[in-house]
């Protein structure tokens, strides 16, 4: 039964339908969480005793930085599945995720530099995490460029999957190498094993925003995947039926 479910989900026709019915729910939930997170973060949370009001950029910056990593890991997972089992949908997921991941990375860099100007007195410093994030952006751009350069869509998807897997081995190495090279950024405050070093009134909006960003990714990637699916399968019977029925 379980197996059957996956077979069904992996068939483009079912995926297209189920994704279509999921998107409004995910988008609605995303809107709800964003509003709640922004309200909590911008009005209810107290100003920081050191950084004043400008720390509130964190509610965008930190979830964006988390998502930039998360999306890459999802891409690597989907890429591995696509390469091993030749599942078309997994390949589509990889390439649909890449621009979203790149934009999250870009958002994290921009919001970080907006925060850095009042805090560190510079738009850009060669700090370890900033540098790692910048290299991550280059990796995303490389993936997008490679996909754009190969004409055949299946070949492009598999090439991109291999590149993503090579990148995912490199990301921890890049991360540690730059961390060890130079560090100015504040250490992790949420993912420590003992009590988080962040006050609960700031943690709640942060987590709300993190969920909102996840939901945003989920519904946008489904929209992109549906579009990609239609373009690829434009000759398939079910697409023709879909178009004719409308």
């Amino acid at each position: 039964m379980f197996n059957n479910f996956f077979h069904k989900m992996a068939s483009p026709k079912y995926f297209y339908r189920i994704a279509g019915s999921l998107i409004p729910w995910l988008a609605g939930a995303c809107l709800l969480f964003t509003l709640a997170g922004l309200y909590y973060g911008l009005y209810l949370a107290p100003p920081d005793y050191q950084q004043g009001e400008s720390y509130r950029i964190m509610f965008i910056h930190v979830p964006a930085a988390w998502m930039s990593m998360f999306v890459y890991v999802v891409m690597a997972g989907a890429g591995a599945i696509g390469l091993v089992w030749r599942i078309k949908l997994a390949e589509i997921m990889v390439i649909s995720s890449a621009p979203i991941g790149a934009s999250f990375t870009f958002l994290a860099l921009v919001s970080g530099s907006l925060w850095g100007k009042p805090m560190w007195g510079a738009w850009w410093v060669w700090d370890a995490r900033l540098t790692a994030e910048l290299i991550l952006l280059f990796l995303y751009l490389g993936i997008i460029a490679l996909h754009g350069a190969i004409e055949d869509r299946r070949t492009a998807a598999r090439a991109v999957a291999i590149l993503t897997l090579v990148g995912v081995i490199n990301i921890p190495i890049i991360h540690f190498s730059v961390e060890w090279w130079n560090t100015l950024h504040q250490g992790p405050t949420v993912t420590r094993f003992d009590k988080p070093a962040i006050h609960i009134s700031m943690l709640i909006p942060l987590l709300l925003m993190a969920v909102a960003f996840k939901l945003y990714y989920a519904f946008v990637v489904l929209m992109r995947a549906r579009c990609e699916l239609l373009e690829r399968e434009s000759n398939a019977g079910w697409v023709r039926e879909l178009v004719e029925s409308k």
Partner: peptide, 9 residues
Amino acid sequence: LLVLPLYVP
């Protein structure tokens, strides 16, 4: 674009 980021470490 593909190679240089991987050479960073």
